[in-house]
Simulated scan of single mutants.
Amino acid sequence: MEKKDRIMFYHSKGWAALRQQALSRDNYECLWCKEEGRVSSGTLEVDHIKDLEHYPELALNLDNLRTLCKDHHNQRHHRMEYSSKAHRKTPKWDDERWD
């Protein structure tokens, strides 16, 4: 599925309704946070387990959806570096230390 088609899909009424079903089914909780024994905080997003880009036939399959917080969704798609050093402040000056 091309990018323009995915954009149209994510603005469709069908997606909006299915997204609400997935959020309700998952009790408005990030499933990965729940597995870690934490309570979700922040924005919740609905993730396609098998990517929409490669599996468009599963786009509206509720079993292919899961609720993730924004951080876990970004982590899942490798949108940001998630190492222990990634969350540390980068010093502006050589003599600035935050350890």
Rank of each mutant, 00 (worst) to 15 (best):
M8E: 07
W32K: 13
H11Y: 10
K85M: 07
K89R: 14
H87S: 03
R19D: 01
K92L: 07
L52E: 01
G37M: 11
D26L: 10
S12A: 01
H77M: 02
M1R: 14
H78T: 02
L62Q: 03
Y28G: 00
L62M: 10
H73F: 05
S84M: 15
D99M: 09
L62E: 02
I7G: 02
S84T: 11
Q75E: 05
K3D: 08
T67D: 06
E57F: 04
L31P: 06
L52N: 04
W93F: 10
Y10T: 03
K85Y: 11
L58C: 00
K34R: 15
Q20H: 07
C69Y: 07
K92Q: 14
A17V: 10
W93Q: 08
K92M: 05
R25P: 03
H87D: 04
A59K: 15
Y10F: 12
K4E: 01
W15N: 08
Q75W: 12
K3M: 07
K85G: 03
S83I: 07
E29L: 10
L23Y: 08
N74P: 05
D71H: 14
D47I: 04
T43D: 04
S12C: 06
A17W: 13
Y10A: 02
A22N: 05
L52P: 06
V46K: 12
V46P: 11
K92P: 05
G14R: 15
R76K: 15
M80C: 09
L52D: 03
H77P: 09
E57W: 13
D51Y: 08
D63K: 15
W93M: 04
D47R: 09
R19W: 11
Q75I: 00
R25N: 02
D99S: 10
D26C: 09
M8H: 07
M1L: 11
R38K: 15
W15V: 04
E53H: 14
S12M: 01
T43Q: 15
K50Q: 10
R38G: 02
A59I: 03
